[in-house]
């Protein structure tokens, strides 16, 4: 079994923390893993992405081929669309619905949502609003991971919760609790 995830967002939104948590869970579960990140200049308010590949067998390429991703997991709706050619025929898109507008020519929001909604199996939610509502404003990325967890078969929600504990453990119990709460809120939001 293999799962290829294209993680997307804008520099500073916390996609690498999502990758770290999934990576930790995958390692604990004894899965093979490759995760290609973007560092350097593109972190500064530009688009960022990470290729995350999980498998029960060996993994060759660090990069996901076109049409190969099982999931696009995005912290920003337009950034989810950027990687559409990578999405496989059965792949799904899980994304934040809240545009992050830091460029003058951001597309028309209604047209953007229409294009997103036309994708089969799309899941979108205002994760920042959810994070605020549960009083964990810095944990929107874990809300998104919770949404993704509903659709991951290669890792169980309990394995991901355990990984959240171990990744955020050194930042104190409050941070762990906020992130778990956010994860659960995302998980419960999808039936």
């Amino acid at each position: 079994m293999k799962t290829d995830i294209k993680l997307a967002g804008v520099g500073g939104q916390g996609i690498l923390s999502i990758a770290t948590v999934i990576g930790e869970a995958a390692t604990a579960a004894g899965l093979s893993l490759k995760q290609a990140e973007v560092h350097g200049m593109s972190q500064r308010g530009g688009d960022v992405q990470s290729d995350l590949r999980l498998s029960t067998g060996p993994i060759s390429s660090d990069l996901i081929p076109l049409g190969g991703a099982d999931m696009i997991l995005s912290m920003e709706p337009m950034e989810a669309l950027r990687y559409l050619p990578y999405l496989g025929p059965e792949g799904i898109v899980v994304t934040s619905s809240k545009p992050f507008v830091n460029i003058p020519d951001y597309p028309d929001e209604a047209a953007l949502m229409e294009e997103l909604d036309a994708l089969p199996g799309l899941m979108r939610m205002d994760i920042n609003e959810v994070a605020l509502r549960i009083q964990a404003p810095r944990s929107a990325n874990m809300v998104l991971l919770g949404m993704a967890a509903r659709n991951l078969t290669i890792l169980s929600p309990e394995e991901l919760r355990k990984a959240i504990r171990s990744v955020f453990g050194r930042k104190g119990e409050k941070v762990v609790e906020d992130n778990l709460k956010a994860f659960d809120a995302g998980y419960e939001s999808i039936q």
Binding site: P65, I103, E115
Partner: peptide, 20 residues
């Protein structure tokens, strides 16, 4: 040869890095 590839999205703008 690979299977069919989806077309790029229509509602898309470049997002270059910028000074903080």
């Amino acid at each position: 040869s690979r299977g069919e590839i989806r077309l790029p999205a229509k509602n898309l703008s470049p997002r270059p890095p910028q000074l903080c």
